[in-house]
């Protein structure tokens, strides 16, 4: 599944980034690499960007960006 589908409060591990070039690099700058653990921490009150905890930082991604990140959810 992709990161935008990860329910709030759940954890997952990144498996792949389905995006090229500058945008991919920016995601990697923010700590999103295959193998990174992510935690969907909170969603903006207006419903769109979501803040994910990634490698100790709280990183905000808009839905269309999160859609490019493939993840494997972690059973809780």
């Amino acid at each position: 599944m992709t990161l935008d589908e990860l329910p709030r409060g759940d954890r997952a591990v990144v498996t792949a980034l389905d995006i090229r070039g500058g945008a991919r690099r920016r995601l990697m700058d923010l700590g999103l690499l295959p193998g990174s653990a992510v935690h969907a921490e909170m969603t903006s009150p207006l419903g769109d960007p979501t803040a994910y905890e990634i490698r100790g930082a709280l990183v905000v991604l808009r839905r269309e960006q999160a859609r490019a990140v493939h993840v494997e959810p972690e059973g809780r």
Binding site: M28, D29, L30, G31, R55, G56, A57
Partner: peptide, 9 residues
């Protein structure tokens, strides 16, 4: 120091 992985690249 709290986010070393993010800073090392």
């Amino acid at each position: 120091a709290t986010r070393l992985e993010r800073n090392l690249p």
